[in-house]
Computed example of a mutant assay.
Amino acid sequence: MRPADLNRLTVQESADRYVELIRAKTLTGALSTATAEVYARDVATFVLLAGEEKVLDDLTGEDVDAILLAFARKPDGRRAEPDGGLQSASSQARFRRSISALFKHATLTGWVQINPMALATVTAKERGGLRPERRALTREQAQGLIGAARDLSDGQGQGAIRGAPAEADPASGSVSGSVSVSGAGRSRRRDQRTEVRDALIVLLLSTMGPRVSELVRANVEDFYTNDGVRYWRIFGKGGKTRDVPLPDDVARVLEVYLARGRDQSPDKALLLSWRGKRLARGDVQAVIDRVQRQVDPDRRRSVTPHGLRHTTATHLLADAVDMDAVRRVLGHSDLATLGRYRDELPGELEVAMRAHPLLRRPSGDR
């Protein structure tokens, strides 16, 4: 028998009340506006998948399983694939957290008797498989992506510095050869001159592993030089900052971008859209996909910005870089968190066992 105080709200009614509550939390600072909107978007998707007229308390663990699997198969409109691509593992995990928070609140307020999330049986493998979108790129794949980014910056930036001539294709309006950005500006629309910016985005993500929010939040003034070394002051989660030195190649592309590739704009953002406004988080995936199309198909694999964060951590650690240094680069508060970003690489166990430290002969032995 249901308790007398159970409130049998429909899915739509409970969602509306819950979204109103989380948006109210932004006024007190308990939640950021961006986080509240993510929750609201996921709850709206939950309503569509569950059925707005259903009573929330009538949903079972099996219903939750079906909703999670339906979301996993739902095309992701942000992806560049023709069918939109399926939801990434990170999106599935975020969606699960969002509806779990909804049911937790519903349990406390008497909208449901039993939290059906506790009865859900869908496993991580069913929801996301091996997480190919978030898994670190192999060394060959990462080098292919970085090489494509370098080619973009060399063609559009280095040619500008060297003053190399540009050859225009009268049929397409494109420019070939070593092209200066200023030269390209006479033959290409402003929204087509983003090569150096795109190269910088891919290089920063691949070699330094910032969160995508940290990347789009960066301002020109956050990059400074100290004793001949270029640093990026990254404003991370919880108001914490970290100063990370840029690899020399990345610093050179940054200089080209600031000198030649970034349009003059009153906006202090480092990364600008072709309209001269701060680049949005959702635009970053499109940039990666655009650069990926320049990679040899044998070395190409779809990857998200967070997958490139995994790539940074995995390859720094695989190359025996000090774990605490890697933690500081990524902005983690403790080493335990770093462990989740260390992905397996093909062949690494074989290499490790071939170079086993206990089997090395002393230097005096023959």
Score class of each variant (00 low, 15 high):
L349V: 05
S206F: 03
R197H: 05
R275P: 01
A72M: 03
D76H: 09
L358K: 10
N7S: 12
S302F: 08
T311A: 14
D65F: 08
S88R: 15
V19W: 05
K237L: 06
R96A: 11
V229A: 06
E167I: 08
H332Y: 06
V202G: 03
F46C: 05
I201T: 11
L59Q: 09
Q294R: 15
P305T: 11
L145A: 04
A72G: 05
L308A: 04
R275L: 10
G173D: 04
P75E: 10
D57P: 06
R162S: 07
H332A: 03
Q285L: 15
A166C: 01
Q113M: 14
S180H: 01
A313I: 12
R290D: 12
L317P: 05
M208E: 05
A184L: 14
I288P: 07
G307I: 07
V175C: 12
V122D: 12
R190K: 10
A72I: 04
H306Y: 02
S363R: 08
T60W: 03
T109C: 03
T225V: 15
L349R: 10
G159M: 01
R340A: 13
E81M: 14
V291A: 09
R262Q: 10
A164F: 07
P305M: 10
A136T: 03
S91M: 13
Y341K: 08
T337Q: 02
A148L: 07
P247G: 07
L254C: 02
P170E: 05
P297K: 02
G84V: 14
T304N: 07
G110A: 11
L272C: 12
R96Y: 10
T33S: 10
A118C: 04
G339D: 08
G185K: 14
L308S: 05
R8P: 15
G261L: 09
K54W: 11
L204R: 06
L358T: 02
V351H: 01
D298L: 08
Q294W: 05
